[in-house]
């Protein structure tokens, strides 16, 4: 592999941009194709397909044999609420390779001491999230129980193409949330994208167990079916 291509691939990943490295397995010749250059490439169709699935693959085309190293941005987890569950969630998310960002305007909660190894932003969601940039590789979780904080975050997550949106709260709490979101103009289809009550039903009791059930549900959305945004596209 050419060193300049390796450096370019690493730079693309850090910038959260998708790209594909094409290797001609007969000659060893390589090129790096960014998402924007896809259409002009001779292998455009295969590149597009693999990029959508987020999977590297060997392909044949016009008698040639190629390997496509597909690099989708690393999945990211944005959490509203620097609460007890979020502490466990941040630890488990790190193990499964998510970049995690915690957002909570309550400065007593949003401290580096409570989250020594995770990025914490002590701002309101509607201020913090535009700079963070929610995208289709982002899982969004609202955990404060407080509509004043959770709702502005949910508004942004529903408007973005997050592959997972979850909100903590009982069925009753969620029913009231649905009413507020409908009143704010969100369609039933959009609201139905919210996983609530949040997490897989494993009978979780402790904050750590709830975090496991949330991560399990996020991984299910990520791995088991095409990203929602891509299905709609």
């Amino acid at each position: 592999m050419r060193f300049d291509l390796l450096r370019a691939m690493n730079a693309e990943r850090r910038a959260r941009r998708a790209c594909v490295l094409v290797t001609d397995l007969a000659t060893g010749a390589q090129r790096l194709v960014g998402a924007d250059d896809l259409a002009a490439d001779p292998l455009a169709e295969a590149l597009d397909r693999q990029l959508r699935m987020g999977k590297s693959a060997s392909i044949e085309h016009d008698g040639g044999h190629y390997f496509l190293t597909v690099q989708a941005p690393p999945a990211r987890l944005v959490v509203i609420g620097a609460v007890h569950v979020s502490q466990a969630l941040a630890d488990i998310a790190r193990m499964v390779d998510f970049d995690t960002i915690i957002v909570d305007p309550r400065t007593a909660f949003a401290t580096d001491e409570r989250f020594p190894r995770t990025r914490v932003v002590a701002e309101w969601p509607d201020e913090a999230l535009p700079a963070i940039g929610l995208d289709r590789y982002t899982a969004f979780v609202a955990l404060t129980h407080d509509p004043k904080i959770d709702d502005p975050g949910l508004h942004q997550a529903l408007s973005a193409q997050c592959f997972y949106i979850g909100a903590l709260g009982s069925k009753k709490t969620h029913a009231r949330r649905v009413e507020r979101l409908a009143a704010a103009g969100f369609s039933q289809d959009a609201i139905a994208r919210i996983h609530a009550p949040i997490g897989l039903d494993i009978g979780a009791v402790t904050p750590q167990e709830i975090a496991v059930s949330i991560i399990g549900e996020i991984l299910l959305s990520l791995r088991k079916k095409p990203l929602r945004a891509e299905k709609a596209a």
């Binding site: 592999m1 390796l6 397995l25 999977k55 590297s56 693959a57 060997s58 390997f67 190293t69 597909v70």
Partner: peptide, 16 residues
């Protein structure tokens, strides 16, 4: 750099 380019059956690590 070594890369898994093809797998058959129950391979332990995915392509890529």
């Amino acid at each position: 750099i070594a890369t898994v380019v093809e797998t058959w059956g129950s391979a332990p690590r995915p392509v890529g």
